[in-house]
């Protein structure tokens, strides 16, 4: 190779410079006028990539080698349930099944009723799938004790859900008090035909 040729080669290897950024353009990289710069990968980007891969390796090692509990969802669930069982407070010892008539309890009762019970007993108590609460006919009795038992244990075969797992004892009293005090005796828009037997109203 003559010196001439060497210097020519050198020239060819010379990079063109992008004037706006002073970065090197890569030779021969031009597509429909689009050129490419010879910039390196930003170091922070490389670290981001390395760290994310390291995260993955550690994660999989914890899963497969150490079988860490928190990566197995059923174990995680069981732990949660045990914890929950320990923090749940029990109902008050002096709990008594009785009709509540303070406005706050009745308002709470209405709230529960409108959210949960209305889908079957309708908002005005007229009854749809569940029986009418406004009339004097009752299937399972009309005292608070009777009703409390129904709301607690349900009559699932007929479609009345047991609410012992969904409503607290107080909530059950409140909603029934609302039925007894406020709904019973009113005139609903479309009353369902009487179900059960006619009973004298005790309240």
């Amino acid at each position: 190779m003559t010196t001439d040729e060497i210097s020519k080669n050198k020239d060819q290897e010379q990079y063109e410079i992008d004037t706006l950024t002073n970065d090197r353009l890569i030779k021969d990289h031009e597509y429909d006028g689009i050129k490419e710069l010879d910039n390196d990968l930003p170091p922070w980007w490389k670290w981001l990539f390395y760290i994310s891969i390291a995260f993955g390796i550690i994660y999989l090692v914890r899963l497969w080698v150490f079988q860490s509990e928190d990566l197995y969802q059923v174990q995680e669930y069981q732990k949660d349930m045990e914890e929950a069982a320990s923090i749940v407070t029990k109902p008050a010892a002096d709990f008594e099944i009785k009709v509540l008539d303070d406005p706050a309890s009745l308002a709470n009762g209405k709230d529960t009723y409108d959210k949960i019970c209305q889908v079957c007993h309708l908002i005005d108590g007229g009854g749809l799938v569940g029986p009418n609460f406004t009339d004097n006919y009752w299937i399972h009795g009309n005292t608070m004790e009777d009703m409390y038992q129904i709301v607690t244990d349900g009559v699932i075969e007929k479609g009345m859900i047991p609410y012992k797992d969904q409503l607290s004892p107080t909530q059950r009293l409140e909603v029934l008090s609302y039925i007894i005090k406020d709904l019973h005796g009113t005139t609903p828009a479309n009353p369902k035909a009487p179900q059960g037997e006619e009973l004298e109203w005790p309240y």
Binding site: L20, T21, N39, L41, P42, W45, L48, F49, S52, I53, F55, G56, I57, Y59, L60, L63, W64, L71, Y72, Q73
Partner: peptide
């Protein structure tokens, strides 16, 4: 669980490759 775990680790590993595209797009505007 193992399939879920693969979903997790490969998703995390996707941040940098995706951002590579973003960087190349935005820094082209320098």
């Amino acid at each position: 669980d193992w399939a879920q775990a693969l979903g997790v680790v490969f998703s995390i590993a996707l941040i940098a490759p995706s951002w590579g595209g973003m960087i190349n797009g935005l820094l082209t505007l320098r």
